[in-house]
């Protein structure tokens, strides 16, 4: 039961994060609009988010999810390694399973790295007020658009965000479908659909998050 409980925490928090990503990406799409519309819209949107009490709760859930997901993944990985202390001299795992599924831990660490840098770039500046002060836009909202825009004028950041969107997509591809299975979804045809949905979802997220910095860079 504990094996199952631990995996359920990872699956549950993972699914919550998956939903969050949809909202996050949709909002980010505002950045793709022409500058005159998008700056206004993006800044209004982020102000609304910051001031909504409901979003505050969601934000704490989000922090908790990231923490639990990571902590339990660490525990599970540690225990899994203990369950298999001796490794094979020759192991052809690629013949029976995908590389992604064999390396969720590694992919997870990359995603975590992504999140940490991302939080440092935005969350720390905007919410914690660290680093250079954020200016106001014409409507009196914090000019988050400008923060984003200027960050992605740096080609290193663009490269970092774009490249790390790949492991993110891989992590999501395996994570989404196996989260459902962990939580007991076992309908035969449903699983086939789920497999496709996971692929599409992961591709959209990966391409979406990966391409926005590039577009902003060239804007």
């Amino acid at each position: 039961m504990n094996l199952f409980f631990r995996k359920s925490i990872i699956a549950g928090t993972g699914l919550f994060l998956c939903i969050f990503l949809i909202v996050h990406l949709s909002a980010n799409c505002i950045l793709l609009l022409p500058e005159d519309i998008s700056r206004e819209m993006y800044n209004t949107y982020s102000t609304t988010l910051r001031e909504s009490p409901l979003i505050k709760i969601v934000a704490y859930l989000l922090y908790a999810s990231i923490f639990l997901h990571t902590a339990y993944a660490a525990i599970v990985t540690y225990q899994n390694r203990n369950a298999k202390p001796d490794r094979y001299a020759v192991n052809n795992a690629k013949e029976n399973s995908s590389w992604t599924s064999q390396n969720m831990g590694l992919l997870g660490i990359l995603v975590l790295l992504f999140i940490v840098v991302h939080l440092a770039n935005f969350w720390a500046r905007i919410k914690l007020g660290m680093g250079a002060e954020v200016a106001m836009d014409n409507s009196g909202n914090l000019d988050v658009y400008q923060v984003t825009y200027s960050l992605f004028q740096n080609p290193y950041y663009v490269a970092f965000y774009t490249i790390l969107a790949i492991p993110l997509g891989m992590h999501l591809h395996h994570g989404l479908k196996s989260a459902f299975k962990t939580l007991g979804f076992h309908h035969k045809r449903g699983l086939k659909v789920l497999s496709k949905v996971s692929l599409i979802y992961a591709a959209v997220m990966s391409i979406g998050f990966g391409i926005i910095p590039v577009i902003v860079y060239f804007k």
């Binding site: 039961m1 504990n2 094996l3 631990r6 995996k7 599970v76 225990q79 899994n80 203990n82 369950a83 298999k84 795992a93 029976n96 399973s97 995908s98 599924s101 064999q102 969720m104 395996h174 479908k177 196996s178 299975k181 962990t182």
Partner: peptide, 15 residues
């Protein structure tokens, strides 16, 4: 019992 014996978690690699 499966846990007690020291088996690991299923991560659905499918192998």
């Amino acid at each position: 019992q499966m846990e007690k014996e020291g088996f690991g978690h299923c991560t659905f690699t499918g192998a």
